[in-house]
């Protein structure tokens, strides 16, 4: 299979942005699902992994914005830090997936994924500490919010995202990372 074309990358990005609106609604039945299961992060990380950093960045920035416009979630007050966080997830996962080549698809995916998840959380924490909640944001609040509360979401992302990428490769919807291996 050939490289993904610009048009296909654009449409995949559009689909991932739309999923940023749809998936949180699917989790809506579960109380507090947004902060625990992090449904909006899944399409953003996936878009970065498949299409590269510019598309991941756009998906991460536009996904929360459109979701806020269409469904009111995240509320306007939480929107700016969430846009920054998701944009960094998309950008970092895309950048790492372009840079990391270990000749093992699973290793590439996990390195990119974990690197993006850490980078996004660090940048989001810094943004909250320095801009959005200057002076009143602590290390404990950061660790609690981004790692402890979100632990189920982190586990879901680590289990689910590589499976989705492999399912898409198997279905021939995206090219294999290392054809013939």
């Amino acid at each position: 299979m050939k490289e993904i074309t610009v048009v296909k990358k654009a449409i995949i990005t559009a689909i991932c942005i739309a999923l940023c609106v749809v998936l949180p609604q699917a989790f809506h039945a579960i109380p507090n699902a947004g902060t625990v299961y992090l449904p909006m992060h899944i399409p953003v990380l996936l878009c970065g992994l498949i299409c590269g950093w510019p598309y991941g960045l756009l998906c991460g920035a536009a996904g929360p914005l459109l979701s806020s416009l269409f469904t009111g979630m995240p509320p306007a007050a939480y929107l700016p830090p969430m846009v920054i966080e998701c944009a960094v997830y998309g950008c970092a996962s895309g950048f790492l997936s372009q840079v990391v080549h270990t000749k093992n698809t699973y290793a590439d995916l996990y390195i990119s994924l974990v690197g993006a998840m850490l980078t996004g959380r660090i940048v989001a924490g810094l943004a909250r500490a320095l801009i959005f909640a200057g002076g009143s944001y602590s290390m404990a609040a950061w660790a609690g919010g981004y790692f402890v509360t979100a632990l189920p979401g982190i586990v879901i992302q680590l289990v689910l995202l590589p499976s989705i990428v492999f399912a898409l490769m198997k279905a021939g919807l995206i090219p294999a990372r290392y054809p013939g291996r």
Binding site: I11, A18, V22, F27, I30, L46, L160
Partner: peptide, 23 residues
């Protein structure tokens, strides 16, 4: 939560199939 998880892979596959057709 267990019910939502098996929902995600088919949703992504269906969405990417549409993306493939449209592109």
């Amino acid at each position: 939560a267990k019910a939502v998880l098996p929902l995600l892979v088919p949703v992504f596959l269906a969405a990417f199939k549409r993306a493939d057709e449209l592109s």
